[in-house]
Nucleic acid binder design. Structure first.
Length: 159
DNA sequence: GCCAACGTTGGC
DNA sequence: GCCAACGTTGGC
């Protein structure tokens, strides 16, 4: 059996936060319009894969909890909706350009494992995509060891 | 609000 | 196929 893959997915809390995910339980991850991020969802994600839920573009950016992949990939319906911010007129229903998965709530950390705290321990993470300068990917794979380190930081209150 | 870094687009 | 211009991301 192939090893389970671990992921990190970013969301702006003003758009969609871990608290809203906790309330709704499962959310279609619409709106990804980057091919690399799409390919991770389309080709590499498996139902049940764990996801680090990351708050970006906010006062304290960082990992705030755990989610999981809750569906197989399917076409993002917002690409066909002319009223949606994510509408893509070049995408055809018979050949959808943008794919996504559903994301399910797992748990919320007691505190945020902040980007600042992760940067301070960058040497323990090795080559961590999130910490690469200029990184803008909103969906990225995380090594199992990196995932575990963030969980242990969460347990230790971010320290 | 600023701006560096990046991905995408389109002219050539 | 190159690359300048543009729009977006996201930390600060």
């Amino acid at each position: 059996m192939a090893a389970m893959k671990h992921w990190l997915m970013k969301s702006e809390p003003e758009e969609f936060s871990i608290d809203v995910l906790e309330r709704v339980g499962t959310e279609p991850w619409t709106g990804v319009r980057n091919y690399q991020a799409r390919n991770f969802m389309l080709k590499d994600m498996k139902v049940g894969d764990p996801i680090l839920f990351y708050h970006s573009n906010c006062a304290v950016p960082g990992v705030v909890g755990i989610a999981k992949v809750a569906s197989k990939p399917y076409p993002d319906p917002t690409q066909f909706d002319p009223d949606s911010d994510y509408h893509d007129p070049k995408s055809k229903p018979e050949d959808p350009r943008w794919w996504m998965v559903d994301v399910g709530f797992e748990r919320k950390f007691d505190g945020t494992v902040s980007l600042e705290q992760m940067k301070a321990r960058a040497d323990e993470f090795g080559d961590f995509t999130l910490l690469r300068r200029g990184n803008r990917l909103s969906v990225m794979p995380v090594e199992a060891a990196q995932y575990k380190r963030i969980l242990s930081m969460a347990k230790a209150g971010g320290r």
